[in-house]
């Protein structure tokens, strides 16, 4: 398969999983709850990275996909008493249909035009869930009393972490194949991809579907963790920017970067809460993102990798 795996890849992943698995033994329940949100944000950021980080089709409307997953399972379980084990796969399937719809404009437009159209998708679903069949969607108030899958912070943490690590590992491996190279090539020069005998349409469709699959999975489990859904919080521009900034801070087009970016951002916002309880916190994280972006546009992942390279080189010199 040509994944180019080395022993230290296994060691780093195993070490990370081990440390994260032991977290509930060492941290408070409050910190665990923060980590649960970080896990879900990581899933959403990875979903965004597969599409926008790789292909360069910047999505400002990712909550459109997350929302389809969340609302589908919420409606099925709450309104139609469908068991969760059927509702979640159905939600993922519906999100992939949503991903295909979102893909259609990408056949003709790209760049900032696509970004704006994707934003329109989010606005569209925000308006629709409030006015179309509010008896199903809960209208502007959303829904509460949705079945939850876990009780207690530790269980919630283990579920969210398991999901996140499965998504992260599978996407990381997938993007190490030639497919990852081809998707990155689209962002660099779509015409040259075509001129190399590859179909950008096929590749983009795959990226949209994979991104939708991950967004649907994350959205569905997220709603079953929260037990409620509120359109105003879900289809919010701040939520979009949190996903994008997490990816960019961590390092777009790397899968691992968005994962770390999500943790960095979630804990940063959490630690700022006592000092800045309102939306001012977003100013601080915006400033940090800006500074980091000016220093290293490729994010924390590349800072870490360049340090690792330097360490390896100094080891070779010794």
């Amino acid at each position: 398969m040509g994944l180019g795996l080395r022993w230290y890849h296994f060691a780093l992943w195993a070490g990370f999983i081990l440390v994260m698995a032991l977290m509930p033994e060492f941290v408070s329940k409050g910190t665990l709850r923060t980590m649960i949100f970080a896990n879900f944000l990581a899933i959403f950021a990875i979903s965004w990275d597969v599409l926008s980080g790789r292909t360069g089709y910047i999505s400002f409307g990712h909550p459109f996909l997350i929302g389809i997953g969340a609302y589908t399972t919420a409606i099925l379980t709450k309104r139609f008493d469908v068991p969760v084990e059927y509702a979640i796969p159905a939600a993922i399937a519906m999100t992939m249909v949503g991903g295909t719809i979102m893909f259609l404009p990408a056949l003709r437009i790209k760049g900032s035009y696509f970004a704006l159209v994707s934003l329109a998708f989010m606005e569209l679903i925000y308006q629709l869930v409030q006015v179309i069949r509010p008896d199903l969607t809960g209208g502007t108030r959303g829904m509460s009393g949705i079945v939850t899958l876990t009780r207690g912070a530790a269980n919630g943490y283990y579920l969210s972490f398991s999901l996140m690590i499965i998504v992260a590992l599978s996407m990381w491996l997938l993007m190490r194949t030639r497919l990852g190279t081809a998707l990155s090539a689209i962002a660099m020069n779509e015409e040259s991809v075509k001129g190399s005998g590859l179909s950008p349409t096929k590749l983009k469709l795959f990226a949209f579907m994979t991104s939708a699959f991950v967004a649907g999975l994350g959205g569905a489990f997220y709603v079953h963790y929260l037990g409620s859904i509120a359109p105003r919080a879900l289809f919010d521009i701040n939520f979009v920017f949190t996903i994008i900034v997490a990816t960019l801070i961590g390092g777009a087009s790397t899968i691992v970067g968005p994962m770390f970016g999500a943790f960095f951002l979630t804990f940063l916002l959490e630690y700022l809460r006592p000092f800045l309880p309102g939306a001012e916190r977003y100013l601080i994280y915006g400033a940090i993102a800006l500074l980091l972006y000016m220093y290293q546009p490729k994010g924390l992942y590349h800072i870490f990798m360049s340090q690792l390279d330097r360490f390896k080189k100094s080891g070779d010199d010794d």
Partner: peptide, 8 residues
């Protein structure tokens, strides 16, 4: 990229 097959 030039050597890739057009099959995902």
């Amino acid at each position: 990229v030039g050597l890739m097959p057009d099959s995902i």
